[in-house]
Design a protein around this nucleic acid. Structure first.
Length: 240
DNA sequence: AAACTCTCACTGGG
DNA sequence: GCCCAGTGAGAGTT
């Protein structure tokens, strides 16, 4: 099975899989965080960049703060005329003038809160992109998931990247090429599987979302929550 | 087109 | 080999 796995170096110091991770790695030597290289992942029409953005200690603190301060929407979604309890919790935050449409209804994002500004500031620093909107998904355990989809909302700034930041449980994340889906698939392109770690950043760059669907599949053995934030650049109203 | 569920076939561990 | 839980993927849904 093709699978990209990038581990925090300190997690597997001697190749001993059972060994607990080292504590306080980022305090050693006075570094604020370990220097971790980013990994480019490329395939036809796919361009990703994966790296650890926050140290363990920072990520732990942010996770706690998110759990305390983020308030989620009611978890119902309408599809094919039917209402479903969506298998996760979801909310959007963003600049006040922005709106977005979901299931034919126009919503406004909630105003920014300090912990989200903190993450956003780090993203600007590290990627140079000024995101103005974030979708937060909370998966309470491995039963919570999201089906295959593309992030192709009309409100997105064309060709802008999406920054996916993860806290909490490590989960598999799968990409499938649009031409390799369904019975009448015209091509055979292997799915790409990643593991998204606590404190990690996955940049999904153009044109990934044109050709590739992604999903967070069920993983029954995962018992802990995962919080994912996808930062986007949305166009102001009336500029479509 | 669709951020869903369902079902069925396959697989790997015990 | 058998069983079962976990999984992936196609079908159905307005």
């Amino acid at each position: 099975m093709d699978r990209f796995v990038v581990k925090r170096p300190a997690e597997d110091p001697g190749g001993d899989g059972k060994k607990p991770r080292l504590e306080d790695e980022e305090e050693a030597g006075g570094l604020s965080r370990p220097s971790v290289p980013s990994q480019e992942i490329r395939a036809q029409g796919l361009s990703l960049e994966y790296r650890l953005l926050f140290s363990r200690a920072e990520a732990d603190a942010i996770y706690q703060q998110l759990e305390k301060e983020v308030e989620y929407f009611e978890g119902k979604g309408r599809m094919f005329g039917k209402w479903h309890q969506i298998p996760r919790k979801q909310v959007t935050y963003g600049d006040p003038e922005l709106t977005y449409t979901y299931s034919g209804v126009t919503f406004s994002p909630k105003p920014w809160i300090p912990v989200l500004n903190h993450i956003r500031d780090r993203l600007v620093l590290e990627t140079g992109h000024a995101f103005n909107f974030v979708v937060i998904n909370r998966y309470k355990d491995g039963e919570d998931h999201i089906g295959e989809h593309r992030d192709d909302e009309k409100e997105l700034v064309p060709r802008s990247p999406i920054a996916s930041v993860t806290f909490g449980a490590c989960r598999d994340f799968v990409f499938r090429h649009c031409d390799s889906r369904g019975k009448n698939a015209t091509r055979h392109i292997k799915p790409i599987r990643l593991q998204l770690e606590h404190g990690s950043l996955l940049m999904m760059k153009y044109p990934t979302n044109v050709y590739w669907y992604h999903s967070l599949p069920i993983r029954r053995r995962v018992l802990a929550p995962r919080i994912n934030l996808t930062f986007r650049k949305m166009m102001p109203v009336g500029n479509k």
